[in-house]
Every structure is written in structure tokens, then in C-alpha cells.
């Protein structure tokens, strides 16, 4: 469903990657690997449509995302390095704001917060929570979204072991229901995914 067609990205006169091609189908998970500075985050931001590639195009369902961005945005869930969680607001306020700006009606949030170990902390401003708990507040979206394509930049950062396992369990569910995941992580995935692909970006000078 997602095609990366000969994408080139140049930043500060350094070519991060050139003529990159790959595609991601329903039920597939793809891990971007490579050293720091290789351009993993830049690639994710291009896939999410925040920056345009210097050459090439991203196609979603055969349509270029630059032209059909609003339709694409409906199908996309992006959680970046900066998670989009406001630290002044509480966990519940953050989650319900996210639901509203994406047009979701508000479901019962407590079961999901309980699953992620955030019950009892839902009214506390997020800045009082630990880094891992703040990450969990951002990851609540994975349980609420109906987006087909997940683009996740280092989703395991600051999560504890049980959190990592729990997140991967959610990945499996998403893949089984026909979704696709594109992620970067330096950790190896501990769960075995049968259709895991890896794209390695080399550091280019």
C-alpha cells in the first residue's frame, strides 16, 4: 500500500540517501536500521509528509501523498521523536485532545489507560510523570486509532521491558488486522514477526 519511489534526501549538502526504493504492504512491518545520522528520521518525516523529498515520490494506494495529503492523513498515525504530548496537560486531556483533532468520538479511556499502567496518574500534569510514562501517554494513540499505516520513530525509547513486550503485542494485532508499520529502533524486536523486513541506511559522507 505504501511505495517509496526513488527518494533522495539531501541535508546541509550531504546526501543522506539517494534513489531509495521499497514498498510496504498490508500486514507487513518494516524496520529502518542504520547508524545515528544516517537519515532514518528524515526518511520517516518524508514518509509522513512533513518534508518533501528532494527527488522521487511517496505513493499511498498508488496515489502521491503530496497531492492527496488529507486522505492520506486519515490513514496515517505518526508518532515522532517529539511525541506531541503537552506536558502542562494531564494524560486524559492530552489523549482527548488528540481524539478531537482527529475527529474520533471519545470512548471510555480508563480501560486503555489501565492497560498502559497510567491509572491514578491520569489527572497529573504530564511533566510530573517519568519519561517512560510520558511515552506511554503518547502510545495510547495506538490503541485508539483506526489508521492503517503507523509510522513510529523510536517507539521503545524509555519504555520498560514489559512496556516493550506489550507494545509489540499491539503491533501483532495491528498487523493481523491488515495494518502496516514502519518504524525505526536501535533495539532488536523481541517478538518474532513473520513478515518483518529491514531496510538499512548506510551513513554516507
Amino acid at each position: 500500500m505504501l511505495h517509496i519511489k526513488s527518494v533522495t534526501c539531501i541535508k546541509q549538502d550531504r546526501c543522506l540517501f539517494a534513489d531509495l526504493n521499497f514498498s510496504l504492504n498490508n500486514g507487513q512491518i518494516m524496520q529502518l536500521a542504520g547508524p545515528n545520522g544516517a537519515g532514518k528520521t528524515s526518511l520517516l518525516r518524508i514518509v509522513a509528509g512533513f518534508s518533501a523529498p528532494d527527488e522521487g515520490a511517496i505513493l499511498y494506494q498508488e496515489l502521491p501523498i503530496s497531492k492527496y495529503y488529507e486522505e492520506y492523513a486519515r490513514e496515517l498515525l505518526f508518532i515522532g521523536h517529539k511525541t506531541g504530548v503537552n506536558t502542562q496537560l494531564s494524560a486524559v486531556e492530552n489523549v482527548s485532545h488528540w481524539l478531537q483533532i482527529n475527529g474520533y468520538s471519545e470512548p471510555e479511556l480508563y480501560p486503555i489507560l489501565a492497560k498502559l499502567g497510567l491509572v491514578g496518574l491520569e489527572d497529573v500534569p504530564v511533566r510530573m510523570l517519568s519519561a517512560g510514562q510520558q511515552r506511554r501517554v503518547a502510545l495510547v494513540r495506538l490503541w485508539l486509532s483506526d489508521a492503517k499505516l503507523w509510522v513510529l520513530d523510536e517507539p521503545f525509547t524509555a519504555l520498560d521491558k514489559s512496556g516493550v513486550a506489550f507494545l509489540q503485542q499491539r503491533f501483532t494485532e495491528h498487523l493481523q488486522s491488515g495494518g502496516a508499520i514502519l518504524l525505526t529502533t536501535h533495539q532488536d524486536l523481541t517478538t518474532h514477526f513473520s513478515n518483518l523486513q529491514t531496510v538499512t541506511l548506510e551513513y554516507r559522507h
Binding site: A48, F50, K82, N86, N102
Partner: peptide, 12 residues
């Protein structure tokens, strides 16, 4: 905090 990216990536 990245909220701006979330607003851009919303379907509105």
C-alpha cells in the same frame, strides 16, 4: 513538543 506535527498529520 511535536503537537504541531500531530496537527499537520490530522485529516483536517
Amino acid at each position: 513538543d511535536g503537537s504541531l506535527e500531530q496537527l499537520i498529520a490530522s485529516s483536517y
